[in-house]
Design a protein around this nucleic acid. Structure first.
Lengths: 348, 348
DNA sequence: ATGAAAGCGCTAACAT
DNA sequence: ATGTTAGCGCTTTCAT
């Protein structure tokens, strides 16, 4: 079946250390020493082995080595995020990758897409590949299923949302403080009738943001009695409808605080549909690219996904290096960026 | 050293198949059969083994199994992109991940950041982890270093840019046709003096886009003699400067074709600085989120990163399934999206 | 400075 | 239907 030309140029099987040893005329352990940069090999032998390895295009099998290696490290890390297509997580991923690559660690990334059913399956897929640690933006109501793994001292850092049913490091934005920041900003510009437009109330961070909003109003002595608080908006369309209804109501708000990107965009399109984008103030939670090119520019409370990734990676690597300090949450501050939409005064 | 409480609640080592077998009171091969869903195990034995595995929180070691497994598949794939923080690659990554996950394949993702020095190192890191295949947006001038790996029949699909010095599948946007599309659009709206603003001429796709632009002008019989063609713009600032210079020149263009996102944004800010955003037409290459919320809306030739990812994954999986057809490039079409900026007529 | 032998956790091949 | 043995590619241990 195999033609002659195929057999001569055909696929050579991947060489093993044993074959490199045979070609170099040394024992297999000597090859191992050279590949791993261990001492006690004469320069001449080292050169001979290196040349043999190169000529065979030898690539050591990291996993085979790990089977017997003392530390058992795969130099691999699992990252579980909402979606790798979401720019927030993309930036975070990049930061994690940077820290990992610097230590020769490769990163598996998987998307959860709000599907809590997939969470356990994806974690299990990582674990079967013996990742050295996990960085997780979880979505399931409880992470108790990870308790056995935690007892095995597998480092785990939760991002974006704190874990439930388990004690582990977490790196999160200060959602309540960020929402309060946005609210105070609008209050300072004279607004009293500020509408809150929030994501699904089942999401912990969404609840935190709402809490921050309401508490700040409370601190300012604003009665939250007739403040419109609308939640469970999860996409642009529903946000758009909700804002249109508000604007068309008898006593419309003079300012909006939108607690999430898609909601913010839906709100902006609604304002434009009523030609009110320069009359009603908006502050959004979470930054959006090109926000400064809009008219008016979009004021936001920006999260810092890069910093979240950096801190999460730093924590994970520290745990890998033996850090035994008690697990606790790390809070990454948010920042108000004024670009115009949040600085519009109240119009009766 | 170890206290009593530590030794009782302390970290138990990860259980092996042998320990599951011992606990279940069966041979190790029977556990292997149950874990891998092989037949010829009685329901009673199967249940016994499953319970033992569960009670120990057993996770099979995929890599240990692969060492001996016939197909040697790690169910792992390497994805090398410009940057995982770039939304274009994020979308592409998501599409690849979707196809991979459906087959139980996990995805390693790494960023190149235009650093051709890292390319070989990152590929090597993937190879040492024995990925089943590679999807690569390469940046090095030649991919000849991959020839030995190709001979080993490691499936490889190049994306975004075609490989040099090697024959392998590639999935790319039709850069020249897309640029021609943009150019024709501007011509049809009456423009003759259209400026071209391009990325680094060292980038193959940038050259392709310029070629498409010039060829379309040629087809339309427009003398390219005094058409401003500016290249080697790689960021917003340089693009901004270049466009300002054009606008301030004696005979400014009535339309701009910007060949890349950052260049497009730099051009827009330049137009706004001269209050010309409603007088000078712009078509950008590559879509930008929120482009429709700008004033005027930004017209673009959109690439289809999701489709590129889908096709690349489909090709890779087909190769893994034994597809031996000759390697060739797959072209993913671009699409013109009119949003306003590209439909502005020429103003003397 | 070098290598032989054992074994990591698993699957393949072959018993029974 | 189940178990036993060998061996995957490597590191460890221990000789030399």
């Amino acid at each position: 079946m195999t033609t002659m030309s195929e057999s001569s140029v055909g696929p050579r099987p991947r060489p093993t250390m044993r074959q490199v040893a045979a070609l170099a005329g040394v024992g297999i352990k000597t090859v191992s020493r050279v590949i791993n940069g261990e001492p006690d090999v004469s320069p001449a032998t080292r050169a001979k082995v290196k040349q043999a390895a190169d000529s065979l295009d030898y690539q050591p099998d990291l996993h085979a080595g790990n089977l017997r290696r003392a530390d058992g490290r795969t130099k691999t890390l699992g990252l579980l995020v909402g979606s790798v297509a979401n720019p927030f997580y993309g930036t975070l991923h990049r930061a994690v990758e940077k820290a990992a690559t610097a230590r020769g660690i490769a990163v598996f990334a998987s998307s959860l897409d709000d599907d809590s059913e997939r969470e356990e399956a994806l974690v299990s897929a990582f674990l079967q590949r013996r990742v050295d640690g996990l960085i997780l933006a979880t979505v399931a109501t409880s992470q108790a299923y990870l308790a056995p793994e935690l007892r095995r001292r597998t480092p785990m850092v939760f991002i974006d949302r704190e874990p439930a049913g388990i004690e582990a490091d977490a790196v999160v934005s200060d959602n309540a403080a960020g929402a309060a920041l946005a609210t105070r900003h609008l209050l300072e510009h004279g607004h009293r009738r500020i509408a809150y437009l929030g994501d699904l109330d089942s999401i912990q961070t969404a609840r935190e943001r709402r809490r921050g909003f309401l508490e700040e109003l409370g601190r300012a002595g604003v009665a939250t009695r007739d403040i419109p608080v609308i939640v469970d908006l999860h996409d642009e369309a529903s946000a758009n409808r909700a804002v249109l209804a508000l604007l068309d109501s008898p006593n419309p708000p003079t300012a909006l605080f939108t607690s999430q990107n898609l909601v913010t965009i839906g709100a902006i399109t609604a304002l434009r549909a009523r030609a009110l984008q320069n009359r009603v103030a908006v502050v959004g939670f979470d930054d959006i690219s090109l926000a400064d090119l809009l008219s008016p520019g979009l004021s936001v409370v920006a999260q810092n996904p890069q910093r979240i990734g950096e801190v999460a990676a730093e924590r994970l690597l520290a745990r890998l290096d033996g850090d035994q300090t008690p697990a606790h949450p790390y809070i990454v501050p948010t920042e108000l960026i004024a670009r115009g939409s949040g600085e519009i005064g109240p119009h009766a």
